[in-house]
């Protein structure tokens, strides 16, 4: 039995979010629902990266005055995934905006939000 840490809980939550989001993107029919599932999916990936950076007994990577730099580098959590997560949040917002715009344009033409009607295959 492994010890339950915050990191493990983070991985579990990330797995749940990724599975639920992926399942929603693959199996739901409504386009807006697909987009909501996409936000859940990107949340899950963010959480996976943040949980990866965590270390037990670590500190927030902010160099406060009076802190020894050796102490800081040996205890601070990884700063690199934070950069990735910030980028991912921003890219997620822009992807959502583009997808919603396309859905609105297609709704005006077809009058429905069902992916099985709008995105049906057709012979050219």
């Amino acid at each position: 039995m492994t010890e339950v840490t915050i990191q493990l809980l983070g991985f579990i939550a990330a797995a749940i979010l990724i599975v639920v989001g992926m399942g929603g993107m693959l199996f739901l029919d409504n386009l807006i629902k697909k987009i909501i599932a996409f936000t859940l999916l990107s949340d899950g990936v963010n959480l996976l990266l943040v949980a990866l950076a965590y270390r037990e007994g670590g500190i927030v990577p902010i160099l406060l005055p009076g802190m020894s730099i050796y102490d800081f580098t040996s205890r601070a959590i990884l700063i690199f995934p934070a950069g990735i997560v910030l980028t991912n949040i921003v890219i997620g917002v822009s992807t959502t905006a583009i997808l919603v715009a396309l859905v609105i344009m297609l709704y005006r033409r077809y009058g429905t939000l069902k992916a099985s009607v709008i995105l049906k295959g057709e012979r050219r």
């Binding site: 983070g10 939550a13 949340d43 943040v50 950076a53 500190i59 949040i89 997620g92």
Partner: peptide, 21 residues
């Protein structure tokens, strides 16, 4: 999720996620 980020020692990401999400 923002609270979870906070618990995982990433308060800056928690703030961003709270606003954006």
């Amino acid at each position: 999720l923002a609270f979870f980020f906070h618990a995982l020692l990433a308060p800056d990401l928690g703030l961003t996620q709270a606003i954006v999400g």
